[in-house]
Structures are given as structure tokens and as C-alpha cells.
Amino acid sequence: MPGRATVRYGGQTSCVEVRTSAGTTVIVDAGTGLRALGQKLARDSGGAARRHHILLSHVHWDHIQGLPFFEPAYSSGNTVEVYALLTAADELQQVIGGITRHEFFPVPLEAIPAEINFHEVDPGVVMTIEDVTILPFALNHPFGAVGYRLDADGTSVAYVSDTAPFTDVLHKQHFLSGPEPLSDEDRRVLAEMRGALVAAVRGCDTVIYDTHFLPEEYARFPHYGHSTPDQALEIVAGNDVRRLILYHHAPSHTDDQMDEIAARYKEQGAAVGVDVITACEGMSLAVGPRGPA
């Protein structure tokens, strides 16, 4: 969202950098924010070959469109490891590589100089990247998405985007023009997904959560696959989470509206013992007492 209304909070699509005190960098999501991050990483490397790790929550455009503009991918010697959930396709390379087909982008995947490897993630199955332990867990989003809990430096951060709440709609692998009635089986699946999410974020210092909608907006679009800050607070409150980051802001929300949202939920969070912070681009936060500054 370019323009005057997004100068303070930022207008790029999803991308978060997690860095450990040992210097390991794990990138979560590859929206347009990845372009500037890639430029920074390329500069910081001073030309030395590096291995980059990118965890994808899912492959909707706003979470992958930065990938073809990731500068380190254009230096041979570098390696880019991409982790994602496989849905609605046979292989990740076909889906993620598909965005560089000649119809969409001038440089095909095969011509990109860095080595690019694709890794399928499995909700519930722990992965390790250097000194970071990563737990993927399923989220409620059209065609599926995963959140990640990252443990390192004796602290934890969870990335929970994109997801709908677990009450009104169960997202499956078909198009929803509106909410569909829930079966008993659907309710069981939703309860199980919610349970795994609550367990994954328990004890996290910081939880980054899809809070795209205000409650009145959610009421109109419950089938879009996104949550409200109220629903995020409901998941983290009383679950030993110190801090909640409001994230995945709606494209229609201006900086002024974001100020109001930030103030309103700061107060609501404080009432249940959670420090609520509204994400803005360029913001850098220390995670946990032993995290890097």
C-alpha cells in the first residue's frame, strides 16, 4: 500500500526477520518487505557466500511476492532454503517456482544463480535451523497455512499469520463465497487446531498474530481467513505470553486508524496482563530477557 496513509506503519506485505545472538537469521514470510531485507542482508554479507532460511506461512501472493526480488538469490554461492506447507499441488518447487514462470517474471527459477532448495513442513514436526528450534502448527486459512514457534537464546517467539479464529468457519480446499455451516467433524477439527495453537504459543515471550480485522469488519467477512486483536488476545491471555504483536494490517487501515487500534488494544491487553504492540516497519524488538538487543 504505497502512499501517504501508510508512511508510519508501512505498506509492505508480510515479512519478519528473526535473529539470534549467534547471528542466525530466519526470515518468516516473503512478502514485499523481503526486497529491502534482502538488500540489507546482501550488504551485511560483504560478498561472502551465505545460507538464507525463509519460512513461509503459506503461498498466497502477499506472502511470496518478494521472493523474486530477494537480492541474495542473485549471487552464485549463496543458498536459499525455503520451507513451506504443500497444499493443492504435487511439489513446492512447482508452486513457488511457478511465480517466476516467464509469463509473470523475466528470470526463471533455473536461471537464478543461488542454489534454492525447497522443504516441506509438517505441522507438529519440529525442525532445526542452526541454533533455532522450530515448531510448525496448522492455522485456519483458505487452503491451509502454518504458524511457527521459534525457540533460541532461551526464549521463544511465535508467528501466527494468516489465520481465522476457530469458531465460525473451517477453511478447507475450496472457494468460500460466504461462511458455510459447521458439521460436528468441522468443530472437532477446529478445536484440535486451536488446541495445538494454544499449546504452541504457551510460554512464548512474543506472539506475532494476524489481526487484520476490527470486530465489525470481521463480522462482514468471517470467511476471509483473518482474525481480530480481540481473538488474538483470547488465544494468548492467561497462556504465559508476555507480549502480543498486532500484525497483517488490513490494506484499508490508514496510519491514523492504526494509531487508534494501537491505543485501544494496548489498554485491552494491559487489562489481561499482555503487552500489546502494533507492528510497524523498521521496528526491531528484543525477544525475551536473554534475546539480542
Binding site: W61, T87, G98, H102, E103, F143, F175
Partner: peptide
């Protein structure tokens, strides 16, 4: 080249890329 306009736009809205499906 080697593809169709409609097929390309359909692929843009493929289920993995867009909830419009």
C-alpha cells in the same frame, strides 16, 4: 509466448496463490 492470456490469469488466481481460486 507458448501460453494463453486466460490461462496465465487463471494461474495467477490458482488456489495456492489466491483465495479467489
Amino acid at each position: 509466448a507458448g501460453s494463453s492470456l486466460k490461462g496465465t490469469l487463471q494461474n495467477q488466481l490458482a488456489p495456492h496463490y489466491s483465495p479467489l481460486n
